[in-house]
Amino acid sequence: MLSIEFLLNALIAGLLLGGFYAAMSAGLSLSFGLLDVVNIAHPAFIIFGSYLTFYVNEHFGFDPILAGLVFAVPSYFLGVAVYRIYYNCFEKTGAESLRGLVFFFGLFFLIEVILIITFGVDYRLVRAFYIGKSTSIGSVGIAYRLFVPFLVGGILAAVLYLFLTKTFFGRAIMGVAQDSLAVQLMGVDPIRIKTVAFGIGIATAVIAGSLLIIIGPVEPTIGREYIGRVFAVTVLGGLGSMTGTLVGGLILGVAESFTSSFFGPSWALAVSFGILLICLAVRPSGLFGR
């Protein structure tokens, strides 16, 4: 039972899954970690992306990844609109800690209910030429349905990293996170920066949604399972650090993979919660925290 192969397979599966987790959490790390906007509806936007992808794949045969990238554009504007409401109603008046949080929770719930009403409660999946195939290196099998999201997720995280560190706008976002007054003095409106960054966060969530439905079938309430995961990854990685988010995602992926290999898949969910609680109790600034 406990062969090297077995462990290696679990490790590879975990790393592949972890890359996807990182992509899934990147947008949250941006909004929660850098902008202090606690968007607990993030997983709901991911599932929303999955269903958009499902719809165009089912009806027009769109490739899921292509669909995700195309939908990222309107989703950006959706994110901009959501942040506008959030800012005007809560952040401006200092009510974000109670009512702002409840607002996002309400959004989460509404998206879920609307998906149920529109698509029903059944599991939905997508078709693409790479789904269902796999390759193997030695005795280690690599399923493309895991590898493709890993790859795309990795690229997404890398692009985000480059954007934040190399472009003027990206550096302005990092600046807002550290000292919004200083950014203001540089002549940049911090609210505009936050709006753009939040929009980007939602766009990445929708892309992550298209990856999620490649990995496996999706139903409207599955977002709840990802709340613990995205927050575990963001907190573990140190809020706002893209490198940290990547490492956090990989750690969670591997930990979940081993847990489900040894104790059965139904226990995998407990891993993210365990990591989250331990992290909060022991080192809330995370692995790469400032």
Binding site: V38, L101, I227, G228, A232, L269, S272, F273, L276
Partner: peptide
């Protein structure tokens, strides 16, 4: 405070 909220969010699932 927000960490308390996040923890309770995950608590029910677990």
């Amino acid at each position: 405070g927000v960490f308390f909220s996040i923890a309770t969010l995950a608590l029910a699932v677990v």
